[in-house]
């Protein structure tokens, strides 16, 4: 290979319904590395892109929530496998986006891969942990199972462009919900590359939709959308979260309580995020002969 070969630069696009469209608005915005050097033009998603993504996520919900937990677990594990194969690319993008030294960026990527594995293992256990047989005082069999709440709007963390992103998206998928994700605005490239991984990991089209753009612009549309059931306002920041929470009230959305500042994403998560996206459903039937 000649040293003076001109490399083929990638066009970073949205990920909606299993495809990679440009923003319907035709807008793009320049993305730079942590030192201000131009990296790429990212698609600047619009309200219409949000609506298209919600339609795709709703369409995908029946299939994904109806898949067996074993199947979902294997798909999530497959995402980890596909990411593993792209470690170098992710590490380079994370290093450029977050200004990390390459060894540190590598360990962030490793943690992100491991997070998929952690959540892959939860898909077929969470119902056992959160469900119940209810000892009711009467001749009835009553049981409670946790079921996915529906379409989840995720405003991904602004700082942690890959590990933070995976930490908020993987639990949505593990529960059987589908997601419309708004990536970090200034650090969107790892999210686009993750979309390419998802597209080749047997994740059905529409289960995850990734929009690059501004959480402050897109978040309120997600929060007020009648076909979105829950919202994670992490990426909206402390001020933006108030507006998101107000908008969400119009359709009684579940709004995730999140810490003021981004947490340390390298810490092992607990099952709180899984719980938030699950609806306990109680079923009764009489017993008799």
């Amino acid at each position: 290979m000649s040293d003076n070969r001109i490399s083929v630069a990638k066009t970073y696009k949205l990920y909606v319904d299993g495809k990679f469209p440009r923003s319907e608005s035709g807008r793009t915005y320049p993305v730079t590395d942590s030192k201000g050097t131009f990296l790429a033009n990212a698609a600047h998603a619009s309200r219409k892109d949000v609506r298209d993504a919600v339609v795709a996520a709703r369409k995908a919900f029946d299939g994904w929530s109806g898949a067996t937990a074993y199947n979902r677990g294997q798909v999530l594990y497959r995402v980890a496998e596909m990411m593993e194969g792209r470690r170098e690319q992710f590490a380079a993008e994370v290093a450029a986006s977050e200004g990390l030294p390459s060894r540190k960026a590598q360990s962030v990527v490793d943690a992100a891969v491991d997070r998929w594995v952690w959540y892959a293992g939860w898909t077929d256990k969470i119902a056992t942990v959160l469900g119940a047989a209810n000892p009711v005082a009467g001749p009835y069999f009553s049981f409670t199972v946790p079921e996915p709440t529906g379409v989840v709007g995720v405003l991904a963390p602004q700082e942690s462009s890959l590990l933070g992103l995976v930490s908020v998206v993987a639990p949505v998928l593990a529960t059987g919900c589908t997601a419309v994700v708004v990536s970090s605005a200034d650090r969107p490239l790892p999210a686009v590359t993750l979309s390419e991984v998802l597209a080749t990991s047997d994740v059905p089209a529409g289960v995850v939709n990734v929009l690059t753009g501004r959480a402050g612009e897109l978040g309120p549309w997600l929060a007020s959308h009648g076909d979105v059931n829950a919202i994670d306002p992490t990426g909206a920041g402390p001020v933006g979260r108030v507006e998101i929470a107000r908008e969400a009230a119009g359709t009684v959305k579940r709004v995730l309580a999140v810490p003021e500042d981004e947490p340390d994403w390298t810490r092992r998560p607990d099952i709180a995020r899984l719980r938030r996206y699950l609806e306990p459903k109680t079923v009764w039937h009489p017993m008799g002969v």
Binding site: N134, V136, S142, V252, T282, H285
Partner: peptide
């Protein structure tokens, strides 16, 4: 729906979780 009654209806018990999906609350 948060509660499904099969071949019965309106059964309540402190051991059985009760509550709604969507605009029936959380």
């Amino acid at each position: 729906a948060g509660v499904v009654w099969a071949n019965t209806f309106n059964r309540f018990d402190p051991t059985a979780p009760f509550g709604g999906y969507q605009e029936s609350g959380f």
